[in-house]
Amino acid sequence: MRHWLAEIDFSDVPMITPSSGDPPACLSDISKVVCNWACDKCAGDDVVECPDQNVWGLTFDGGPTEATPGLLTFLDEQKVKATFFLSGANVVQYPEIIVAEVRWTEKAILEATGLCVRYIRPPNGNVDNRVRSVLKKLGYTVVDWGGDTFDSDDSKTSEMSNDAVKARFQKTIQLYASQTANNIKGFISREHDLTKENVEVAKA
Rank of each mutant, 00 (worst) to 15 (best):
K136N: 13
A167Q: 12
N129D: 14
K41M: 04
V165Y: 08
M1E: 13
P18E: 01
T157H: 06
E191N: 10
Q78G: 06
L27G: 08
A108R: 14
K196L: 09
T105H: 02
Q179K: 13
D12K: 14
S20D: 12
A43H: 04
V13K: 01
Y176C: 07
E66I: 10
N90Y: 11
L58Q: 07
V102S: 07
K136A: 12
L175T: 14
N198K: 11
T59D: 07
V117N: 13
I120N: 07
V99H: 00
L71K: 08
V127Y: 02
V117Q: 14
I8Q: 03
E197S: 15
P123C: 04
S11W: 07
F150C: 08
P64R: 03
F60M: 06
D154N: 00
N198M: 13
G44T: 11
F169A: 00
M1R: 09
Y119E: 15
A181Q: 15
N162M: 15
V201I: 15
G186K: 05
V165I: 12
T65Y: 07
P69D: 14
I120G: 12
V131Y: 02
G70Y: 02
N54P: 01
V13C: 08
G57F: 01
F150M: 03
V117G: 15
T141S: 11
C26D: 00
G70E: 02
T83V: 13
A43R: 00
Q53H: 00
A204L: 15
A181C: 11
C35S: 14
